[in-house]
Design a protein around this nucleic acid. Structure first.
Lengths: 219, 219
DNA sequence: CTTGACTTGTGTATATATTACACATATAAT
DNA sequence: ATTATATGTGTAATATATACACAAGTCAAG
């Protein structure tokens, strides 16, 4: 059909992931080093060309796995980048996703990451990126901030049990703000997503903090 | 480069617009009748293939103009539809937009619409649509509802001068809710987007309603 | 073992935003 | 003049968000 017309021949669809974690108060993003031309050796977002026989979301999962070895649930589509000449050789439109992973889980993948060309970078020390990936990252971070109180993001950011001060620090790192402890606690509990475990753990302070967990039934 | 691999050869990018208006309390959407195979004669959203040398937004404007004769400012990107087999012949990803137009302006375009295959349909009486366009429309309407109090949508929905009851009816039609007159007025004025003209006009009632206009300086 | 430093846990008062609600007024038709 | 209809307006009640101070559990130092 329409592919006959040279005006729209040779288009391609890319999927790109901005994966964030928070490591000791520092927000980091996962980047991979390109190992082929063009832009060989440059850092870029993990991602690549969508296959013809897979859904967009599946293509994103596959590309992320191929490029980094990571399987990250709850990736969220967050943008489309379609400037005419954003890629060199052909017309590519990039569909952008973001996801988060807890520092706890990151450690399990350390060896995987080493064997790929992937590395975590503080979002304040991002190297020059290929194509328009800097713009994509910036946008993804905005979208992460917007959705950070939603349950799927919340559950991805933390492991099984966690303390409220711990959550608060992570939120403050990502959003770049400070919360009053009492008001933050009130807000978080009012979401009805977490419940008391009646255990305690030390987070940063001398006094042990109460451990919470996600509620099974997020009615 | 990557086009050599048959796994991702022959992909294409479509742009699709859901254009809404409100006609005497009825929310309508602009559809066009297909005039070629496949699905010849079926109703569908205006849209089509992106050209290689144009930005996404420009492609949308062009397609909308070609298919309907309308130029509609402030189209807003609102979704991506990328299921593997949503189109028949090749792998197409659709980038979806929505826009609104005031009934006042619609009337100026009546002749244009007749010469194209475009027609307005009540969103409660939408005919069977080509491909996955029904899903796209549903999503676009949701996104319209979410953004309806933002200035660009508001200004597109009305002509120069308007009354508050008039705005209220349009909002109630789109959102499917009822507002208290006093509270709606309070909310609308608190947005700082409109100002009193000190003129009056009759809308539906016997008592003339005050005319408002958009503020030039939307600080 | 007492004291000091540090971080956690908790409740209330204030301000802001949202919701609910009733009557007087301007016009057109009778 | 009377009636019908839709408009314009203010205040009280509720819900939500913000501001704020002190007691308690642990560890380290003396």
């Amino acid at each position: 059909m329409e592919t006959k017309n040279p005006k729209y021949r040779g288009q391609g669809i890319h999927v790109m992931a901005s994966i964030f974690t928070v490591d000791h108060g520092v927000v980091k993003i996962l980047l991979v080093k390109r190992n082929m031309e063009p832009l060989d050796g440059m850092w870029s977002l993990p991602g690549g060309a969508l296959y013809n026989d897979e859904d967009l979301d599946d293509g994103m999962d596959r590309e992320l796995l191929e490029k980094t070895g990571l399987i990250i649930p709850n990736l969220r589509q967050c943008g489309v980048f379609g400037k005419a000449h954003r890629a060199f050789c052909m017309r590519m439109v990039a569909i952008s996703y973001f996801g988060v992973i807890s520092q706890f889980k990151v450690e399990h993948f350390n060896s995987t990451l080493k064997s790929s060309n992937a590395r975590w970078f503080s979002i304040h020390q991002i190297p020059p990126l290929a194509y328009d990936h800097e713009e994509i990252v910036k946008d993804a971070l905005e979208k992460l901030k917007e959705g950070i109180f939603e349950s799927d993001i919340l559950t991805s950011l933390f492991s099984e049990k966690f303390t409220l001060p711990e959550i608060q620090r992570v939120y403050e790192s990502i959003l770049g703000t400070k919360y009053d402890r009492r008001n933050f606690r009130k807000k978080m509990l009012s979401l009805d997503l977490i419940e008391d475990t009646f255990e305690t753990a030390r987070f940063e302070g001398r006094k042990p903090a109460k451990l919470y967990r996600f509620r099974k039934e997020n009615k």
